[in-house]
Design a binder for these strands. Sequence first.
DNA 1: CGATGGTTTGAGATATATCAAACCTCGTGG
DNA 2: CCACGAGGTTTGATATATCTCAAACCATCG
Lengths: 232, 232
Amino acid sequence: MTACDTCVVRNRAICSALDAGELAALNSISRRRSLSPGESLMWEGEDSILVANVIDGVLKLSTGTEDGREQIVGVVYPSDFIGRPFGSTTGHGVTALTEAHVCVFTRRDFDAFAREHPALEHKLLQRTLGELDRTRRWMLLLGRKSAGERVASFLLEMSERLVEQGCQGTHDHPLARFTLPFSRQQVADVLGLTIETVSRQFTRLKSEGLIDLPSRREVAIVDREGLVIEAG
Amino acid sequence: MTACDTCVVRNRAICSALDAGELAALNSISRRRSLSPGESLMWEGEDSILVANVIDGVLKLSTGTEDGREQIVGVVYPSDFIGRPFGSTTGHGVTALTEAHVCVFTRRDFDAFAREHPALEHKLLQRTLGELDRTRRWMLLLGRKSAGERVASFLLEMSERLVEQGCQGTHDHPLARFTLPFSRQQVADVLGLTIETVSRQFTRLKSEGLIDLPSRREVAIVDREGLVIEAG
DNA sequence: CGATGGTTTGAGATATATCAAACCTCGTGG
DNA sequence: CCACGAGGTTTGATATATCTCAAACCATCG
């Protein structure tokens, strides 16, 4: 009985490419780790020592300029893969936004294992291609969208990605209501805006009846149609 | 004697993972194609039918909003891979910026071939991971940098990526002078700015002695140090 | 209850966009 | 050979979205 046997992301993470025996081998080089909100798993520019799978929680990937401006360049959810295999350095830090559990490997071990398991590499390739698609879509937002469009797009994406993926195929209806894993400042860092601008857009969308804000971290989408239009 | 035998990117593209026999098999499902500047190889939102390797030339990957705003989300050079294997649709158009030659596969054929050649998939994974890194770095530029910083960063990146990679390892000195494969409008579409702002930054950098502009498409980097500082 | 950290609101400053005109460059045809 | 026109580029004047700075506000927790 290994940790993998009870792993909740067993069927969705890249590990799903492996059979029982292979999984046992992978398990033997892995280590579980818990992270509290704000705790970092890796730092920008650091030698790429670790890679990991997200079991539980939400983490941000972020870079910054010398003078302290920050940009969140990615957000990862359960079953997502973290880190830079087959490379020497990580271009961004990885920090937990919520309580999180990850399944960690040293890059050395993981690289070696992956090279011997093409099915695993295939899953990783698929995941990486998907992440690249998503990242490029985000570039349109950062390069060309207004503050209002950015915030609306952001809320829609959140409502889609925060769905608790039960093992059974709960067929991915976007949420009408959810708790943001981000502070206002972090939302600003995702969208390339300032905290004040984000706050103003939130209140505007609320006053226009498109969303509701029951509490600081909670969002309810009242008029999804309208929000889609607002998202440009 | 196949087309691959004389291919100039033979040793740099993902094909370098294959031996002579495998290469012959790959060659049999490939097709060469020439593109003139402005010609498109795929369109945004289209079913993902083709993938390709760039042999020669520079191409842009771009998306846009309904109301006509455009954002270039990637630029590909010789030996780069184009398209979305293992996926159903392409999220961005692919258009030649210069005369270009590509080596095209149907996605069906390529997917099948790749699944049987792990070494090829491994190369593709490495390339995709690198592209993801580069794209995320670009997000910092789009989200947090000023117009001046963007243009300076752009020129530095150009000077690094336009190096003619000879077969022998000409060890990648960035160019002091090069011809832009972009119009001013396209530079604006890469940087998320307007054409006027780009133009003004070019003339400013020139007047400050950091660069020279011998002609519309040519750029000479006079003070690389200064440009790096300017890039933020 | 008061302190603290995050958030919202307000007033003003500023970088970039927008609109418009002048300016090159280069190819075409008289 | 020169005049012309067209497309792209630069320059200028103004508008505006977003940022900046500052204060008020609000939940939370000791």
